[in-house]
Design a protein around this nucleic acid. Structure first.
Lengths: 206, 206
DNA sequence: ACTTCCGCATGACAGATGTCATACGGGTGC
DNA sequence: GCACCCGTATGACATCTGTCATGCGGAAGT
């Protein structure tokens, strides 16, 4: 029997300790080889071009660019690279956006480590790998009801900025900021901006 | 030359994938052995009693109990176990509280993976391991200026709860909630509760 | 003993926030 | 062409939030 060429893997995660540990873990599998590691979302495409991986494992929360944005870029720039999103937070909106941006698999980091290599093998066989519980939650929640501008305003207001500051930052009138926040609050079912921001974050809309 | 008995390590982190990867990494060092893994803070002491580790590597953010609380318990229940805090967030207040609860080392997960085994070896030799940048930040920031009650109120208000709800949950009058929030806002230098909560979180006071 | 700080409370007030009605121009879809 | 929705804006209004003064009882430090 002839050994097939090992799967070439690219790893993107901003926490070196975690990234290197996962790289070690995958490296121990004899059908896999970690050919590149990056710690920033905006370094993914260049690394993919340079090392031609079969699969890219992307964290979502990264400096420079989110893993989801990087996945979308990979889809157009390096369409042969399969994408597996590996994230800390299993938020419905993240899953939805990951799928829309062309990811083949979506894993959460509190799943057993064995699922990582397993997921890589499965996407290489053309399968999609998604936690069924998460998939159900994503479907039940429905799509993000916020408009782009409502999202902008809510994000800008979430850190404690006052209306006038949000208005200045986004080039809007203060009244308009109030309006957007008001509709965002209603759409999320919240009672104020802070609760709206929390709910939107939990669902992965921000 | 005789091989010394390997260091016995306990690992606590709620994200299985990360925990198992770190365990694999440490297991590859020939002077180390991971004798126990737990995914909850409140399971640390029982595991330490059962497996008698030399060192406990504790994440901070865990269900059941934080790694810092677990460290304090270990200090009294299993004083021979050295504690290394390994966390995602290098917040000054975390470092301070970790040291006060008797930790020997404090690492952040975006340090290189090699520092993990290195830190374990150094605490075993009686050294303390702390990121100098973080230590400077902790000293510069000074101690947490919030009183226990201010912290309670700020925490309860941070998720978007309205004053009346915070008052009910903590058994206070609404006016008192306003007063505590007001002092917390002044002490943090913020302009409103949301900003105060963000600042306090960044410093590791919540 | 005396001061100081914390926890808790009330009342009054100014300013920020949230809601609603209304308006206009630009897309998208039917 | 005509709804319909989005982005933007204004004004009026009610409510919530943040500040301040003031008070009281208890604990801790001098």
């Amino acid at each position: 029997m002839n050994a097939p060429r090992p799967v070439r893997v690219l790893l993107a995660d901003d926490q070196s300790m975690v990234r290197e540990a996962l790289a070690t873990l995958l490296g121990l599998e004899d059908d896999m080889e970690v050919v590149a590691q990056v710690g920033r979302g905006d370094a993914v495409v260049a690394a993919a071009r340079a090392h031609e991986p079969d699969v890219a494992l992307l964290d979502i929360e990264m400096p420079g660019m989110t893993g989801i944005e990087a996945a979308a870029l990979l889809r157009t720039e390096c369409p042969r690279v399969k994408v597996v999103i590996v994230t800390t937070f299993g938020r419905p909106g993240y899953l939805r956006r990951a799928m829309e941006s062309g990811a083949e698999a979506f894993l959460v980091k509190d799943a057993p480590a064995a699922q990582l290599a397993e997921a890589v093998r499965r996407v290489l066989r053309g399968e999609r790998v998604i936690d069924p519980t998460l998939a159900a939650a994503a479907l039940a929640d429905g799509a993000d009801p916020l408009t782009a501008r409502e999202r902008d305003v809510l994000t800008a207001a979430a850190d404690g900025s006052v209306n006038a500051e949000v208005a200045r930052r986004l080039g809007l009138s203060e009244g308009t900021v109030r309006n957007y926040l008001s509709t965002a609050i209603q759409k999320t079912g919240a009672r104020n901006r802070a609760e709206a921001a929390r709910i939107a974050r939990e669902k992965g809309w921000l």
